[in-house]
Design a protein around this nucleic acid. Structure first.
Ligand SMILES: [Zn+2]
Ligand SMILES: [Zn+2]
Ligand SMILES: [Zn+2]
Ligand SMILES: [Zn+2]
Lengths: 154, 154
DNA sequence: ACTGATGCGATATAACATAACATATGGCAT
DNA sequence: ATGCCATATGTTATGTTATATCGCATCAGT
């Protein structure tokens, strides 16, 4: 089970590297490592959690080390920041631009990235009516996920 | 011009106090003062900005003092937190429950609270499809406001 | 070689938020 | 009146998240 997942992570890293080439951006060792740590994480990872893991292989890593990598990865749309959690997750749909939307479960901590076009359109229109040009949109729904709603039936 | 605004703030404070009574919540001096500081602020106010102002009249105020008041005011839906800015604004539409939506201008810092029912419905439906029950939703559009988009025509 | 852009190292500090325990107050049952 | 509980706030300390700034190395274009 671990092997399959590792292969998937590797494939995602390669995809990400190719996307960077296409965008004229440099996927360095550091950035690739931080992205790998995020991909390998079970859920959202905070900057300092990533830093701790990064330190295992990169002795001198300090906060700016990881924040710089995160800034790059966010600019490339390879990862998203969850503002409610101050934590980072891989983009579930890299490659095409989208208005990321998240469902964050308070019970189990699970985060799901969804993409509801109707909601995105509605917000774009609402902004347009105000003459507002959105550059970055945060949409995070915090509550109870399906699994945690059901009283463990079975 | 200042007098008019002060009267409006006072009216808002009284409304807020009444809402608290209806909700069985205690609008204490401290909480009222923090709400007043938020209402008087020109724009979004951070917790530490509020703390600094609070200290002028409440000598021993420390971070927990203001964070507790903010927690109360948020629970009463009298203020919102802007997650992108770690800052607080008064609710523009107190009294009726709503999915707050914000337009945050990067240029001038202006924040507008809007309420687009179509977007809210779409997100509720999207969550429902996933079996997710939202309790709190963050919607923040960051970009350029109408005033800042126009090259100062005149 | 010179220059500018980028990536990263390294140190320090700023900004944001909470834990944990103490004290005060008021309502209420005995 | 006394004891008890809940709520609000005081108090001290700490934890967590993020940035500023300066320096060095590399590399591409000139
Ligand atoms: Zn995404
Ligand atoms: Zn859950
Ligand atoms: Zn509101
Ligand atoms: Zn503006």
């Amino acid at each position: 089970m671990g092997a399959k997942r590792r292969r998937r992570v590797m494939a995602q890293l390669d995809q990400a590297a190719q996307a960077c080439v296409r965008a004229g951006a440099q996927m360095t060792d550091l950035r690739r490592t931080v992205l790998r740590l995020i991909l390998e994480a079970e859920g959202p990872a905070t900057a300092y959690e990533l830093l701790d893991r990064l330190k295992r292989t990169r002795k001198g890593a300090v906060p700016p080390t990881v924040y710089r990598a995160l800034d790059f990865l966010m600019a490339q749309r390879l990862v998203h920041k969850l503002e409610r959690l101050n934590a980072f997750v891989p983009c579930a749909e890299t490659g095409h631009q989208h208005m990321a939307q998240f469902l964050i479960c308070r019970e189990c901590g699970t985060v799901a990235e969804i993409e509801d076009r109707a909601a995105a359109r509605a917000l774009e229109h609402a902004a347009g009516r105000e003459g507002f040009q959105p550059r970055h949109t945060v949409i995070e729904l915090e509550g109870t996920c399906a699994a945690c709603s059901h009283p463990a039936s079975g």
